[in-house]
Amino acid sequence: METRRRSVVKAVLWNAMGLAVMTLVGLVATGSAAVGGTLAIVNTAIGLTLYVIYERVWAGIAWGRNV
């Protein structure tokens, strides 16, 4: 089983990459670094929360694992 700490670290790293990409996309789409950055931060906060929950649920499911 995966530890809670590992799940959180994976989620934070994944979302840091997503934050960088979303900031760039938001900047290109809106022409504003402030608006693009705000959109990226909101998206990252929601995505991080949901991803941690998703990973923890799957960490408790044995289906498909080679044990």
Rank of each mutant, 00 (worst) to 15 (best):
V42L: 01
T3F: 09
T49C: 10
V42K: 02
V8C: 04
M22Q: 07
M22H: 06
G31W: 04
M1C: 13
Y51K: 10
G36C: 03
Y51W: 10
S32R: 09
I46E: 06
G64A: 11
R56H: 10
L19M: 11
V25R: 03
G60C: 05
V8A: 15
G64K: 02
R6P: 01
G47S: 12
V35P: 04
R6M: 08
L27C: 09
M22R: 07
N15V: 11
A16G: 02
M17C: 13
A34P: 00
A29W: 05
A45Q: 01
Y54G: 01
L27S: 10
A40T: 00
A62I: 03
T23D: 10
I61M: 09
E2S: 13
A62E: 04
G64V: 02
A59M: 05
T44D: 00
R5F: 14
L13K: 15
A45R: 05
T23P: 05
A29Q: 09
V8N: 08
W58D: 12
K10I: 15
T23G: 08
L19S: 05
V12G: 06
M17A: 14
G26Y: 00
V25Q: 05
T30Y: 08
W63E: 14
A20Y: 01
N66L: 12
T38F: 06
L24V: 07
A33M: 08
G31N: 02
I41W: 13
L50D: 01
W14C: 10
S7Y: 06
T30R: 02
R5Q: 15
L50N: 04
A29K: 04
E2K: 11
T49D: 08
V57P: 07
V12K: 07
E55G: 12
W14S: 05
S7A: 15
Y51P: 01
A20G: 10
V42I: 11
L39D: 00
G47M: 01
T49A: 14
G18C: 03
